[in-house]
Design a protein around this nucleic acid. Structure first.
Lengths: 213, 213
DNA sequence: GCCCTTACTGTACCTTCGTACAATGGTTTT
DNA sequence: AAAACCATTGTACGAAGGTACAGTAAGGGC
């Protein structure tokens, strides 16, 4: 699927350059302090600074992608990237007008996914953020829905259970007790899971399950 | 990207059958009143009924895709479809746990786009709905998160470095090499960190640092 | 000078994790 | 019926994680 749109990455430092280029080989890097217009960009990826008024930064970048017209702005969508995504930060970014908020270290495939979504007028945000949004409007917590699930695609029912438990910080022993099986069986499920998901240990599995890599 | 996931459409009447089949040739149609489990489905598309408790319907379908465990559900994502989408209706559906809300008459390409997004743990919703959500939370958002963002407060500089590395999935050995110290020292920092943050191991530390507990 | 904190290191020991090489019984698919 | 997959368990062993009980060295404050 050829991404013909221009992807412009706005950042001060560029530790993620390679990651972004992996997702969009023709990506263009821009300085945050530049004032050049970005109307021709397809998507503006804004690497959020560690400190300062996030909202203001987002809005400034948004302006650079705008074609002012009658107070309306058929502007270029801005996706906020953060090294350490936090729901609060995401909220600020979205409120300021961002069309998406995700981890700058996200896998290339994920970034491409985000690009497609955003480009079609959609909005991309993590499950937990949305839950939070929905929850606040409702005064009730739908405590029920966790995060991503494509990781579970190749796993069996039992393997998913164990993986979920691990991702919550449970030990093999605890999981075994909870499921009423032996620790050995838990290990068996885990070994199979590691193999299927190409992760080396429970820590990496946790990161994967929780959508942080 | 071959869509190997099973797309199950839950509906009473099926005026949209052809539209869905155009998007997913191997789609499977299910009755709303059926009680069969749908754990193996990749995505459950729920055609919302015109009347009744939308939220309850969504939750019932969600349950059919769940693997109950620890109150968590590595469940099959449910996308609510409506013939005439309204923001309020979408809100109810999402609040009930749906991963998406869109027009059932949407073009096949759009449906496929929605599928991809949802499958990767994303959430699909229209711009206006999102705007509404963000706007509503704008007034009451600040007090929203009790999650400790100050996990690093009591840690020394070195301990923070190690904790961050651990939270990225690094092993003690890797951290030692990166920091140019011995593995033993890494352990020392970690032991101190566990003690200060009241966590028992690196996994729990990771969850804490990444704001998931 | 003395105390405290921080960073660093060593040896030893125990626990937990993960894998290798198995096996059994059940269900589903072919 | 055979093949394939799944859940389960066993023994054994090396690797990694974590703790106990030390010590050295540098810097700041009283």
């Amino acid at each position: 699927m050829p991404t013909s749109t221009r992807n412009v990455f706005v950042t001060e430092d560029e530790p993620l350059r390679s990651n972004w280029l992996a997702a969009f080989p023709d990506a263009q890097l821009e300085s945050l302090s530049a004032s050049k217009h970005l109307r021709k960009a397809g998507i503006i990826w804004l690497r959020l600074p560690y400190e300062g008024d996030i909202g203001a930064v987002v809005q400034r970048i948004l302006k650079r992608g705008q074609t002012p017209f009658w107070g309306l702005s058929p502007s270029v969508p801005v996706v906020a990237l953060s090294d350490e995504p936090r729901d609060e930060e995401g909220l600020v970014a979205l409120r300021a007008g961002a069309s998406g908020y995700c981890n700058g270290y996200a896998a290339p495939e994920v970034l491409q996914q985000v690009a497609q979504t955003v480009q079609q007028g959609g909005v991309w945000l993590g499950q937990s953020l949305l839950q939070k949004l929905v929850a606040t409007t409702a005064q009730q917590a739908p405590r029920d829905v966790p995060v991503s699930r494509d990781w579970a695609a190749s796993l069996t029912e039992r393997e998913i259970m164990v993986a979920q438990a691990v991702a919550l910080g449970a030990s093999n022993k605890e999981i075994a007790e909870r499921l009423g099986i032996t620790e050995r069986t838990v290990k068996a499920h885990l070994t199979a899971t590691f193999e299927k998901l190409h992760v080396r240990d429970r820590l990496q599995l946790t990161l994967l399950v929780n959508g942080m890599r």
